[in-house]
């Protein structure tokens, strides 16, 4: 007991010396622990430690920002290079030390590319093809997707679950496996000169049906019953209630379907209808200045022309991404694939 009191008095002296005044006996007894704690803190140099931490944070921030800036440059460089190259003259493009801003800025590359007919059709025609095929396959595909998803989500019929399971199972199979037979099928049907060949085989997309069905399922059943009481038919319910409620998903699906057409390359190349080339097939063709407008080689494929073509193909995607980012990400973040 006495020992403890002694200790307390010891600590009391410390407190006294530190603060320069005597503390009340009871308070010092109560705050003896706190006082001990205080003594420890005073040995710990707070200022030096905060300084150390602050420098560590600054070093970390410099490191993080440098890293992010480098990554951002790497992400942006191909776009920048593509844009500036499309404005350069071929001679400037081939200089051994590349210029990072075109010395002679010219739009000529674009006019040469636009007047090309090398890939079998002009750019205007190919753009029109892509837009027509894209809009038609998006609209028709959306109708098929909506009614199928609706039936799978709301209507009960025999074999529904089996059908749905079968549809989902096909998602595991690589598309190449059926492309072969589809190619044989359409050539047997003599579809060789019509654009339906580019649309019909891709109207059904199981993944979008699955996505939309899940969205439809989230709409409470009581809404359906209320609509029935009000005398709405199944079709009326779909059009007046379900479609407006799932509009964001429908917008995502339409955008992704359209982007899919814009980027489709394999099938159009395989079926190879001269009048119905698509934009991705056009961009892989070699662009030459056959009319001699640029004053260089007229037979060699020129990189500046190619870059101008690439810019024109990328720009719509770019704009779409900037204006519809939310919808595109909504659709893509669930599928893990692009387009």
């Amino acid at each position: 007991m006495t020992k403890k009191i002694k200790e307390t008095s010891n600590s009391e002296t410390v407190v006294k010396t530190e603060e320069g005044k005597t503390l009340d006996q009871t308070v010092s007894a109560l705050s003896s622990d706190a006082a001990l704690f205080n003594r420890e803190i005073t040995q710990f140099n707070v200022e030096a430690e905060t300084k150390k931490q602050r420098t560590a944070t600054i070093v970390k921030n410099i490191f993080v920002y440098t890293f992010l800036t480098l990554c951002a440059i790497a992400a942006f460089l191909p776009f920048y290079w593509m844009i500036i190259s499309s404005f350069k003259t071929e001679a400037e493009y081939r200089e051994s030390i590349p210029t990072f801003f075109p010395r002679t800025f010219q739009w000529k590359n674009y006019s040469v590319v636009l007047s090309q007919t090398g890939a079998g059709a002009s750019f205007g025609r190919i753009l029109l093809n892509t837009l027509v095929v894209g809009l038609l396959s998006t609209t028709l595909g959306l109708i098929v997707i909506i009614i199928t998803a609706y039936a799978l989500a709301r209507i009960n019929f025999k074999g529904k679950n089996f059908l749905f399971a079968l549809m989902l199972a096909t998602m595991m199979i690589p598309g190449e496996m059926y492309t072969i037979t589809n190619y044989i099928t359409v050539s047997k049907w003599q579809w060789n000169d019509t654009f339906t060949i580019l649309i019909v085989p891709f109207l059904v997309s199981v993944y979008y049906i699955y996505l939309l069905r899940n969205n439809f399922m989230q709409i409470p059943n009581s809404l359906y019953q209320a609509a029935k009481v009000d005398g709405l038919s199944d079709m009326g319910y779909l059009i007046k209630v379900m479609i407006p409620l799932t509009a964001p998903t429908l917008v995502s699906i339409s955008l992704l379907k359209f982007i899919g057409t814009w980027n489709s390359y394999i099938w159009p190349r395989l079926v190879n209808i001269p009048d119905w080339r698509m934009i991705s097939n056009w961009v892989t063709s070699g662009f030459t200045d056959s009319a001699g407008i640029l004053g260089g080689s007229t037979s060699e494929a020129l990189n500046t022309l190619k870059m101008a073509a690439v810019c024109m193909v990328s720009l719509p995607l770019f704009l779409l991404f900037i204006f519809c980012r939310k919808y595109i990400m909504h659709g893509v973040s669930k599928s893990g694939t692009k387009g």
């Binding site: 980027n263 390359y265 193909v313 980012r325």
Partner: peptide, 15 residues
């Protein structure tokens, strides 16, 4: 960093 998100692989491959 999200800019290369939506690209045409044939076009960017050429770049």
């Amino acid at each position: 960093l999200f800019l290369p998100y939506l690209t045409n692989s044939l076009a960017m491959g050429a770049v």
